[in-house]
Design a protein around this nucleic acid. Sequence first.
RNA 1: AGUCCCGUAGCUCAGCUGGUUAGAGCGCUACACUGAUAAUGUAGAGGUCCCCAGUUCAAAUCUGGGCGGGACUACCA
Length: 1150
Amino acid sequence: MSDKFREYKQLDLSQINKDVLKRWEEDDTFHKSISTREGNPTFVFYEGPPSANGMPGIHHVMARAIKDTFCRYKTMKGFRVHRKAGWDTHGLPVELSVEKSLGITKEDIGSKITVEEYNAACRREVMKYTKEWEELTRRMGYWVNMDDPYITYDNRYIESVWWLLKQLFDKGLLYKGYTIQPYSPAAGTGLSSHELNQPGCYREVKDTTAVAQFAVVRDEKSEFLYEGVDSPLYFLAWTTTPWTLPSNTALCVGPRITYVKVKSFNPYTGEPMTVILAKDLMSVHFNLNNADLSLDEYQPGDKKIPYQVLAEYTGEELAGVNYEQLINWVKPNGDAFRVITGDFVTTEDGTGIVHIAPTFGADDDRVAKQNGIAPLLVTDKEGKLQPLVDRKGRFYRLEDLDPAFVASNVNTDTYREFSGRYVKNEYDELLDASYSTVDVDIAVMLKKENKAFKVEKHEHSYPHCWRTDKPVLYYPLDSWFIRTTAVKDKLIALNNTINWKPQSTGTGRFGNWLENLVDWNLSRSRFWGTPLPIWRTEDGSQTKCFGSVEDLYAEIEKAVAAGVMSKNPYEGFVPGEYDKTNYEKIDLHRPYVDDIVLVADNGEKMFREPDLIDVWFDSGAMPYAQNHYPFENKERYQPAEGRGVFPADFIAEGVDQTRGWFFTLHAIATMIDESVAFRNIISNGLVLDKNGNKMSKRLGNAVDPFETIEQYGSDPLRWYMLTNSQPWDNLKFDVAGVDEVRRKFFGTLYNTYNFFALYANIDGFRFKEAEIPVSERPELDRWIISLLNSLIKEVGESLETYEPTRAGRAISEFVNENLSNWFVRLSRKRYWGGEYDTDKISAYQTLYTSLVTVAKLSAPLAPFYADLLYTDLNKLTGKEADQSVHLAEFPIADQSLIDKGLEQKMDIAQRASSMILGLRRKEKLKVRQPLAKIMVPVLNPRFREQFEAVENIILSEVNVKEVEYLTDTAGIIKKKIKPNFKTLGPKYGKIMKQIAASVSQFSQTDISELEKSGGYTLNIDDQTVALTTDDVEITTEDIPGWLVATEGEMTIALDIHVTEELKQEGIAREFINKIQNIRKESNFEVTDRVSLKIVKHDFYNEAVTHFRDYISSQTLAYDLILVDRLEDGLGTVVEIDQDIEACILVEKMG
RNA sequence: AGUCCCGUAGCUCAGCUGGUUAGAGCGCUACACUGAUAAUGUAGAGGUCCCCAGUUCAAAUCUGGGCGGGACUACCA
């Protein structure tokens, strides 16, 4: 082993990435970071499973950088961190990519290819990019346990999911209902939204539309509407599908929309009437030119129809009013014919009042359910509830309905005429386009009954079935649901206990989603996914749900015994044995489960409900299913406090998961355990390209994470992502930013380390000396140690509250501004030359401690370089017990070392120095030229005290000999006064402006009077204003006759007169500088000793002679001679002053 | 369409509970420094704090309404 700190020629973070990775793998550091925490409290992290059927992108680095940062931090805080990797393997994207690669469509499944072959293809497809994912995980330094990842298609995983479904089933939370889905009566099948988005599906068609009149029921709820009304009162609602009007059960208004009540006449019958519609749509339904016509002079049949606006109402006010059923064919069971409110209502077209037929519109269905409005259903011969239109697209034939239902609910007189008619003529092969449609006939009927306000043809776009070319209906189709609405309050209450980052996603996006919760539609009519473990008899009277393979197995055996099945397809499986091999003997996917026919208690056959479940249930089940709970690992769910794996302490994913994984985790945990699934959550924003556009492969603006890591290493990438903007804001990703981080932060940190290594190696510093008590160290050391402890505190608090951006920025500022730019710069002389004394040792110890602490603080964010820095430092000193920074303990701030007063003083020093350097540059006075003095006005003793404490630092930094403090008494200070708005504002309010004006008029005498007496009285608008010294800020801005700089409250003047003595010293320093440069250009070692020969010149002879010892000591010269001339070709010519050149020969000793 | 996020210098972002010269880094221009050197410092130019209204003595900050960008969820009379 080398006995020196490693010195680097250049910083190659990409290579460091590789070297450190190799070391981690050789040392098995990741597993050690867990095993060394054995027995400690756990910190549970849930990995949202990615789908490996796509390549990972740069945004995955973002989410994973966040995850990794907190898992590493918690490890350093001593927790045993659980983080099991997983794969999401089911779902539509997988199916689509299989269909693409096999060149088939959904229709071909079961004909061209068997379900079995198809699912086998899915199984292969889904793990296609596993290698790439693992490689990214490795190279970006994401530590997650990949030894035994959970895989959602695994039979054991599915079994846990089944178990969860069974719990819900037993609690009555799983039920069969319907959702409104696009349905093609011609094809007899539902269409997915994907199918509906095929090109050409939406076509412009001309349909008969109607504005119908819904008569208000006059009762106490509607009485307020009747003020000034002397004719029948109606709500107007428009529809493009009059065939849905018989199924109307509600009217929907926008709560904030303004509605008007208008007195007029029905254009078809001429009957007087009063109607309600949205104010914004008045002009569509009434000719504004007719506004002045007299209502009294109207005769039925007149072309011009007069009208009169009687009143205005908001939608909110109309809610709750009842109306009469428009078409009385069928009576609904339940609450109906009421005005409700919905946010989706607009005033773009129609009347601003939406006709609601819950059985034929998705919005309708949802808003009806939320308001407790019943759908209009009929009972068929089998006793099943059905919409008024059957699956062929016809109004139900009377003979197909349950006679008892017909007797009680159906008005056969009016319905008979329409019974059995297709709602779209296209569905009836026998009809041509000329035949009148149901829409027209209903419209005509309404006109006759004085219920139609307007009937007209209207062109709009309407979806069509891609296979039959015929129009699609929105139609209720069977679906299994989870009754999440039943636990809504619990979901909300538990959500309020979760720490969301940012909070707004939790209260806003997620909170609002919970407030408007509808039941979770679990069904998917697909092939590759977790099958519903539910078997039913054909009539639906008997249902069985299975929560384990064991139960299903037993039931199969029963069926075999009953002769329903010939043999058990899961033969060979041993119920109750949970090892992998046993579970590999079976397959719980389709088509295998579909072949299982069971026998009900009454002897009837039971068939599996053909649906799969929503893949989001798969991933939301991972807290349980990742460990095959409750079949295995049961004890880890009922552990001593803080030792289990549920719930998670922390999760992090993109904000797009709010209604996805975040919800399903939360919902399942709430329903199963009445617990949150996660306690803290970061939902990060998107990664956009540098122009703020979404990244996509198609546009070619996607950034390849592998290339970026290869070029820069993952540390700068991670650091950039975490610190450039808050993770929950969108990140405009620009590689130039990554490069900047590399240069600014890692470059500076690396330089600081290299500086340390260079001198520590020269002086043989190994941190073998006893640590010098901080109180005995020089002020500069105590200052950086104070800041360091403040930093530890801030970084610790930031990470504790899940604020990685704050943490990273604080570290970066400390390293750049304080450690490198101030501490090291001012300390350079202490390391360079001189004795190996206490001051020097203190300088080394302080810098060493700062660096090793920075390594620990940065380790969660920048795991590679931090570990290299840590090990490089520790290798020689052995000060740290752990072989990797990731095994080390996170630093704890020592409050007693934080000295705010000292931090303030140093802040004065920094500001003063930069002001003086600014003045020098204005006067073109090189820093090498010493100057005599600065003058500082002091207005209070405290400031003087602070300034004096750092006086020497300032003087040496700016190369000035002394400070002169100017007090008031000298009479040469000019003061400025400014009111303190913060104290005066609340006291005097309105006259504040006038106070400010008077104060700014103060003369020097006024100011000193105020200062002397501590108060001053003003009279403004007869009001007495008593100013105290706290109410004003007094500063100086000018010292007449001097070169002055002012910043905030500090003013400094610089004496720019250069005496002969100062001039000579300046020349000496100029020589030192030039000689050092020559040494460096000659590639001498820092420690080489030299001899110097300088060719005489009258300009500097005296200065060189006078400062010979000084020059020699600084340049390590044992000899300095002024010579008349040097041999030709020897020596270097440098410029010492304007037009003054010197020839210098620097020779290395023997 | 709804919900949520964002809008401050050419670019990326700070600016907490309102307080009077709105900051930093990058970039640009000029200059300086120099045994940390593919580093560093100083200065300069660069702002209708998206717009409008309100509250207030005082608004980048609080309220309301727009506009623009983005995400999710919906697809509708």
